[in-house]
Amino acid sequence: MLTVDYDRLGVGPDTRVIDVGCGAGRHSFEAYRRGADVVAFDQNAADLAEVEVMFAAMSEVGEAPAHAKAETVQGDALDLPYGDGEFDVVIASEILEHIPDDDAAIAELARVVKPGGKLAVTVPRWLPERICWALSEEYHANEGGHVRIYRADRLRDKILAHGLDYRGQDFAHALHSPYWWLKCAVGSSNDRHPLVRGYQRVLEWDIVSAPAATRTAERALNPLIGKSVALYFDKPLYFDKPC
C-alpha cells in the first residue's frame, strides 16, 4: 500500500533513494523492485531488522534487479549521516507528524536531496485526522504518537522555505479514513471489536486483490476523504542554501 507516486518521482534503475522513517519498509521495497539503490532509514532497530530480512528475500527470489542495492541504516531524522545532495529522491512518508521539531527534520530532508532531485513528503490529511483527534484522545496522545495536524498549504510553505520548488499534491487511502474513524469511535486500541476486525479484513482483501471496483471508488473518494496528502518538490539545479 503505497502513498507516494513512484512514476511521478521517476524512480528507476540506479536512482539513489533514501526512505526516511521507513517503518516496515513499504516504500523502500517498491524502490528496490524498480531497480533503485535504496537506503531504508529509521530509528527503530526492530523495524529495520525486518526490513533487512525482506530485502534479502527479495534479492533471493529475483524480485529486485541484480544491479539494485538496498541497505538499512539506523539513525535520527534530525541529523542524517549524509552529505549535502547525496540522493536523487528523498521520501518521508507519515513521519513529520511524529516529530516535535519538524522544521529541523524538513531542513535535513531538503539538504540531502541533490540539485535536480526530488522530495516527496506525506502526512495525514487535515480533515480525516481532525475527526480522529475529536473521536479519541488515545489515538494521538501517546508516546511516539501524532503531535500535530497539518494543513497541506502550511506544510508546503515550510518546505518551500528551504529553497525547493513545489510540483503538486495527491491524496491517497480514502478507504482507510472510515476504518480509522471507526477505530477511534470504539477505542483506538480495541482491535478485537467485530466492526473493526470486519473492516480490517476488507482492507486486507482490497490490498491483496486490488479489484477494479474498489480501486475506482478510492480514486473517486481520494480528493474528498483521502487519509493522506502527498506533496512533491524539486530541488533547483542551481540551488543556493536559504539564509
Rank of each mutant, 00 (worst) to 15 (best):
C132K: 03
R154V: 15
R156N: 00
T122A: 03
L155F: 09
R156E: 09
V123A: 00
I131D: 07
I149W: 02
L155R: 00
C132A: 11
R130V: 01
A120S: 00
L135F: 12
D153N: 06
A141F: 14
R148F: 11
V123I: 09
I149F: 05
I131G: 10
V147H: 13
Y139G: 04
L155G: 07
Y139D: 08
Y139A: 09
Y139L: 07
L155Q: 09
E129V: 06
N142F: 09
D153C: 01
R154Q: 15
L160H: 06
H146K: 08
I131C: 04
P124H: 02
R130P: 00
L135P: 11
Y139R: 05
E129Y: 08
D153S: 09
A120G: 01
E138G: 02
L160Y: 08
A152C: 00
E138A: 14
V147Q: 14
S136I: 11
W133S: 04
I159K: 00
A161H: 09
V121Y: 01
D157A: 11
D157P: 04
R151H: 03
H140Y: 12
S136R: 14
A152V: 00
H146M: 12
D157M: 06
R130H: 10
L155M: 10
A141Y: 14
L160W: 06
A152I: 04
R148Q: 11
K158S: 14
A120N: 07
C132Q: 11
D153T: 04
P128M: 07
A161S: 12
R154I: 13
I131R: 03
V123L: 04
I159R: 06
L155Y: 06
S136H: 13
R151S: 05
A152E: 10
R130I: 01
P128C: 03
P124T: 00
E138M: 09
L160F: 05
G145Q: 12
A152K: 04
G145K: 08
V121W: 04
P124Q: 03
L160S: 10
R125E: 05
V147Y: 14
A161D: 04
R148L: 11
A161N: 07
V147G: 12
E143Q: 14
C132H: 02
R151V: 01
V121G: 02
G144R: 15
R130C: 00
E137K: 13
D153R: 03
H140W: 15
R125M: 04
Y150L: 03
A134E: 10
D153V: 01
A134I: 03
E143P: 05
K158L: 12
T122C: 04
V147K: 13
E143F: 14
H140D: 13
P124R: 06
V147L: 15
I159P: 07
G145E: 08
V123H: 02
I149P: 09
A134L: 12
G145N: 08
